[in-house]
Design a protein around this nucleic acid. Structure first.
Lengths: 185, 185
DNA sequence: GTCTATATTTGGATAGAC
DNA sequence: GTCTATCCAAATATAGAC
């Protein structure tokens, strides 16, 4: 068996993810990815033979996996309001209380590879569907459930932008707090 | 008098602005800025001796000027609901029906110069103040007016993110349509 | 699996002709 | 004011030692 990696895959992806989320795809330089991960450039290429595009795909895959967990309460929890409150709690963690931007925002600027942008769109669509489903379960019509899901995602993404621009997590916290009311209230 | 420029300042800023809004600060390469403006790199440096940072400042100044016009109805129009509807109409134009991202979003990623990020924060603060003022004028308390203004900006920025991610302006249009209700309803 | 060293390309910036 | 030509630094990527 080969040598053990100096940083395991999960920790590595977490570091790379932060760089992509802070700088966007084009702004995430190999130098920044290298210093954030503690691995030299060549080592990153060993882990990701397809280079920066491959790292970005891996980051998005890890985000998809994270959302599998974040959205899980929407399916397993019987009470829709409790389910949404728990999703909100997990979102607060995932976005580090507003200090971390969303890949849906930063990795979808022009210049990112098409497969990255397509994957981000799919992630957004799945998130919308999961939120619409819990809204339906709470009694909303199909159209109303979809409207609430869209509104919820709009608020989450917008409040994350404001948190970054103003360097103040207030709007993000407020959005999370009001998520149960907005979605299943 | 010197030779006439092949592209006037307003048109030039508009082209550069599109590149920064689509790619973000770090992603806006001189090559992209050059081909978007039709000017070769050296000509861009003639117009902007301080290079890319200077171009970004000029773009933000032009956006500030544009917002002077976008927010003008909030001050001049007597009826708050009419004022907000007219602001919404001008926002729809400014964001090209959701096809153009917001500089508050794309130019505030890590890697943008500090003065750019500070200027963006100031722009956001001014916009919030103008919207809070019109909400107040419509009868809301100070706290309620500020809440509505924050909510409005959150929705605008978030719906622009969704418009880009999903390549669908629906949420952005909906946000603009509901802006009078959200702000002064 | 990680490193040093190096190749290659792109990005940012300047000099000087027209 | 714009251009061609050029320079330098940074970014992406690879080769090969350990």
């Amino acid at each position: 068996m080969g040598r053990a990696p100096s940083i395991d895959d999960d920790a590595l992806l977490a570091r790379l993810s932060e760089v992509f989320r802070h700088h966007g795809y084009e702004g995430a330089s190999l130098t920044a990815l290298s210093s954030a991960s503690g691995l030299h450039r060549a080592s990153l290429y060993h882990r990701f033979p397809s280079g920066k595009p491959g790292m970005a795909v891996a980051v998005l895959e890890s985000v998809e996996a994270a959302f599998g967990d974040i959205l899980e309460p929407l399916k397993s929890e019987a009470d829709p309001a409790v389910a949404v409150a728990e999703m909100a709690r997990r979102l607060g963690e995932f976005y580090a209380d507003g200090r971390l931007s969303c890949v849906l925002d930063t990795m979808t600027l022009l210049g990112a590879p098409d497969d990255i942008r397509a994957r981000a769109a799919g992630l957004a669509t799945g998130w919308l569907a999961a939120m619409a489903a819990v809204a339906r379960r709470s009694g909303a019509s199909k159209a109303e459930a979809e409207r609430r899901a869209g509104d919820a995602l709009v608020r989450i993404e917008g409040s994350l932008v404001l948190a970054r621009v103003l360097d103040d997590p207030a709007e993000f916290r407020l959005t999370l707090a009001e998520l149960p009311r907005a979605l299943v209230g």
